[in-house]
Amino acid sequence: MQTRLHINGDDHQLDADARTTLLDALRNHLGLTGSKKGCDHGQCGACTVLVNGRRINSCLTLACMHDGDEIVTIEGLGAPGRLSALQQAFVHHDGFQCGYCTPGQICSATAMLEEIEAGWPSHVTSDVSGKAELTVDEISERMSGNLCRCSAYPNIVDAIMEVGKGRRG
């Protein structure tokens, strides 16, 4: 199947079996190995990428369903020497141990902060019709789709909190 993907600002033409997930297309066909395969069943979040600005599990979607879509992976968020604010904050707060979940954590957090800014409520927002605050509980709940088996959660939350607060000025 021919699929046109717009990834990190570049056009890519993918020729792959219809069964190819977006994650496998990125890693195995396009050489973008920043996105990680953890569980391959949407449970761990290591494969999180942004599609048209939204975070999704790239393991649970077919590449051919994303013809023409705008995709951003960890490689597109920043690189050594020009890290994104969240990448910098993860380094500063030591928000990882083995690092395997980190690309997914950072992609997820990037979109999650946008969701809070857009006023989306969460399971822990006391009044769903009101505005959510940037709290540890909110960050933990909204990031529950990203597992860290090293349990670096406290530092991950600190990193996200720093960037979130900076944005809110």
Partner: peptide, 10 residues
């Protein structure tokens, strides 16, 4: 909001 994760709900 009680179901799944942010990524899955998207």
């Amino acid at each position: 909001l009680a179901g799944a994760s942010g990524q899955l709900r998207n």
